[in-house]
Structure formats: structure tokens, C-alpha cells
Simulated assay, not measured.
Amino acid sequence: MTRLFTFLAAAFLALPALAVELGDDGLHKTDWMRDTFKDLSEDLAEANAEGKRLAVIVEQRGCVYCTKMHNEVFPQPELADYIRENFFVVQINLHGDTEITDLDGEVLSEKDAARKWGLLFTPSILFLPEEVEDGKSAGQSAVALMPGAFALGTTLDLFTWVNEKRYALDGDEDFQRYHARRIQERDNGKTD
């Protein structure tokens, strides 16, 4: 009985370390997310000034897949460090009323922006180019979209593929081929 009590006490004490911070809006918060005025043109300019890529993550309160990503995938040091070093991440609430300014200049609520961009799943991450055409929204300008929750390898590979601008390279290595190659390299012990 003493062993069981000791085990349960240790497990209970470990829980706060595993908990992910939730904001007042019910969304998960990380140190690599930026608290901005949600003017995406300004966010893009700031990301560029820092030498980073702008990514917009769309989440919702109570999303089990968001929780999975924030508890199991995003905290992995390899991914968290990569995001922190290379990306400027702005969080949008799928059902939020906070006003944002889209890249095309339209001012609308977070929920209306998510609808405009055609986002149905959370989490979804829009990856934006360093320069956007005048009059194009974030949804129209995105170079990649991660619709939903994925494992560490897929998530890291997509962030890397975007950061390395592989979407703009000529050739036959779209993301799926790139990801398949990276899986093979990891299986062969050539990469981390």
C-alpha cells in the first residue's frame, strides 16, 4: 500500500509539469507564439525583419487534436527550438471575435477570417511567403497548409520544407516526396 501511495503521489506531483498553459480564450499558449495586434501585414513585416517565416496557427477551445499537438509534438525540443528560431507564429481562434486585418487589408473577426480562408480543422497552420501579392488574402497567399494534427516527423519536415523554400524549387520533390525521403534517411540513421 505504501508503494502505491508513493507512486500515486509522485504521479500527481508530476502533473503540473505536463500541463500546457491555457489562455483566457481556452487556447494553448507557447513561448514561441507572438501576441500581436493581428494585423497580418505588420506581422509579416516583423517576421521578415527578424529573418523568420510567418505562420498562422488556427485553434479552438476544447480541441483534442490541439491538445495532442501541444502535449506531445510541439514540446519536443527539436521542433520547439526549430519553430522558435525560424518562425513568427500568430495564433487565431477558429470561433474568436477578436478583430484581425488580413493580408488583403480586410478587417474581420478571427472566425470570419477562418471561414474566408476555408479552414475547417484545428489545428491548422497557414505558412506564408515572405512577400505576398497585393490584394491576396492569407488563405490565397499560403505556400503550405497543415490541416490537423501530425506526428513529430511530419510536423518538423513540413516546417523545414517551408523554411527551406522547397515549395519554390524546380524539380519533382514536392512535400510528400521530401517527407518520404526524410523518413528513409531517419530510418537509415542519416539524420536525427
Rank of each mutant, 00 (worst) to 15 (best):
R84M: 00
R61Y: 14
H70C: 06
V89C: 02
Q91P: 03
G105S: 12
R84D: 13
I92A: 03
P77Q: 07
D104L: 10
D81H: 09
L79A: 01
A113F: 13
F87E: 09
T101Q: 10
R61H: 14
H95W: 14
E85Q: 15
T98K: 14
K116A: 13
N86F: 01
F88W: 15
K116C: 01
E59M: 15
V73H: 04
S109W: 11
E85D: 15
T98D: 03
D81L: 09
D102T: 09
N93L: 02
R115Q: 15
D97V: 02
N86Y: 03
C66I: 01
I100R: 00
V89M: 08
D97P: 03
M69Y: 07
V73E: 00
V89N: 00
G62A: 13
F87G: 08
F87V: 00
E99W: 04
H95R: 14
Y65P: 04
L79C: 07
Q60T: 14
A80N: 07
R84W: 04
I57P: 01
N93F: 04
Q91A: 00
D112E: 10
T101C: 00
L94C: 09
Y82L: 14
F87P: 03
F87M: 07
D81A: 11
K111V: 08
F74W: 14
G105Y: 11
C66R: 03
N93S: 06
E78T: 01
L103Y: 09
C66A: 02
R61Q: 14
I83M: 09
I83E: 05
A114V: 12
K116I: 03
A80Y: 06
T101L: 04
A80Q: 10
G105D: 10
A113H: 08
F88G: 01
D104P: 05
V58C: 05
E110F: 08
Q60D: 15
Y65H: 13
L79Y: 04
L108W: 11
Q91V: 03
Y82C: 08
Q76N: 11
T101P: 06
N86K: 08
V107F: 07
P75Q: 10
H95I: 15
E59A: 14
E110W: 02
T98F: 05
F74N: 04
A113S: 11
C66N: 00
G62Q: 12
E99H: 04
C63T: 10
V89R: 00
F88L: 07
D104K: 09
F74I: 03
Q91H: 02
V90P: 00
D104S: 14
F88D: 00
Q60G: 15
I100E: 00
L94Y: 15
S109Y: 04
G96P: 07
N71W: 07
V107P: 04
D104E: 05
K68C: 02
D104A: 05
Y65E: 01
M69W: 09
G96L: 10
T98S: 07
Y82E: 10
A80E: 13
E59N: 15
D97G: 10
F74Y: 15
G96R: 08
D102K: 08
R115Y: 11
